[in-house]
């Protein structure tokens, strides 16, 4: 078990390291840089010497490997460098922009889970007939909808036509309703599709027939035998979908004009602000890796088959 733990954490660190290096190299390979964009504009009227001085102050004139190790050392000590465009430390920008995105993402994820369970429960409890078929076809509809379109449609219908949610100076809760839905719907789609298929598969298992032969009712069978077996494979997919959630958050923030990591990313890309981008990539990777690490560590707890295998090899 301990070996498994060390192995998994080691893998996670390795992924982070690779992500950091790849992001660094790719960002350095981009033509042009933020210093040029900011200080070479004519209104600054700086001389070539002054620009060179600024470059050396930012460390931009060092050879690439030296910059790599400096940045790495800085990241390890929690120093993400300076945003050239804003002229403030990146960590300060993150402090402002990270919480709203985290809030949006976690609310979106939670809503997605609630949607998933509702859809799966309805399709299995409501019974036969058109309703089940209709509910089961819903997820494939959601999955094919792009986030930005969905966002615009939600605003169009709920705000402008039905007038249910105000878009002009909304309250703190009201402000979040539509973005959270925009984020949750496309993620709940694949999740509920998989959950429903799992439930159907588990229902066809011989042990379900054995449970029925014991005299168990349909509800008893669903709750005591089907749910846990059907939910297990969902964990993996939930971990993977978290990545989609981050990407979705960026677009959603843009559509609804919210502050957050999305807006920050947008600006930083426009300005070639590599320090900011590097920090965003590493933070996203950290979040992604942590979620998947948690999923991996939860598995042996939830599935006794894995638990035994581990204790045998450890």
């Amino acid at each position: 078990m301990i070996r498994y733990l060390i192995g998994r954490v080691g893998q996670a660190l390795l992924v982070l390291m690779v992500t950091f290096s790849a992001a660094f190299l790719l960002l350095q390979a981009l033509p042009g840089d933020a210093i040029m964009i900011k200080f070479m504009s004519p209104d600054m009227a700086l001389s070539a010497d002054q620009i060179a001085e600024i470059r050396s102050a930012y460390g931009a004139d060092l050879p690439i490997w030296e910059r790599y190790f400096r940045t790495l050392a800085n990241f390890l000590t929690g120093n993400f460098g300076y945003s050239i465009q804003a002229g403030v430390p990146v960590s300060q920008q993150l402090q402002v922009n990270l919480p709203p995105t985290l809030q949006l993402a976690s609310l979106g994820f939670l809503t997605a889970i609630i949607l998933t369970i509702t859809i799966a429960a309805l399709s299995n409890v409501v019974g036969m007939g058109w309703l089940r078929a209709a509910i089961q076809s819903m997820p494939s509809l959601f999955i094919s909808v792009p986030v930005f379109w969905l966002g615009i449609m939600l605003i169009q219908v709920f705000s402008f036509q039905l007038g249910l949610v105000s878009v002009i100076s909304p309250g703190p809760v009201e402000r979040l309703i539509l973005p959270v839905l925009t984020l949750a719907i496309p993620i709940s789609a694949p999740m509920s599709q998989i959950l429903m298929r799992n439930i159907d598969e588990v229902l066809a298992q011989p042990f379900v027939a054995v449970a029925k032969a014991k005299g168990a009712s349909h509800t008893w069978v669903l709750w005591r035998h089907v749910v846990r077996n059907a939910v297990l494979p969902m964990l993996t997919i939930a971990g993977v979908l978290f990545g989609e959630l981050l990407a979705g958050a960026v677009v959603t923030e843009a559509v609804y004009g919210l502050n957050g990591l999305g807006g920050l990313t947008n600006q930083a890309v426009g300005n070639h602000d590599t320090a900011v981008l590097q920090a965003i990539v590493v933070i996203s990777a950290l979040a992604f890796v942590s979620i998947n690490l948690v999923v991996d560590l939860l598995y042996p707890v939830l599935d006794p088959r894995l638990g035994t295998k581990l204790s045998m090899t450890a």
């Binding site: 011989p206 042990f207 027939a209 054995v210 032969a213 035998h225 077996n229 599935d303 088959r305």
Partner: peptide, 17 residues
């Protein structure tokens, strides 16, 4: 009153209980 002994013991028990 009626009970079942199934065919395939391998998949006839719930793996997580």
């Amino acid at each position: 009153v009626v009970a079942l002994i199934p065919q395939d013991p391998g998949s006839s028990l719930n793996p997580v209980r």
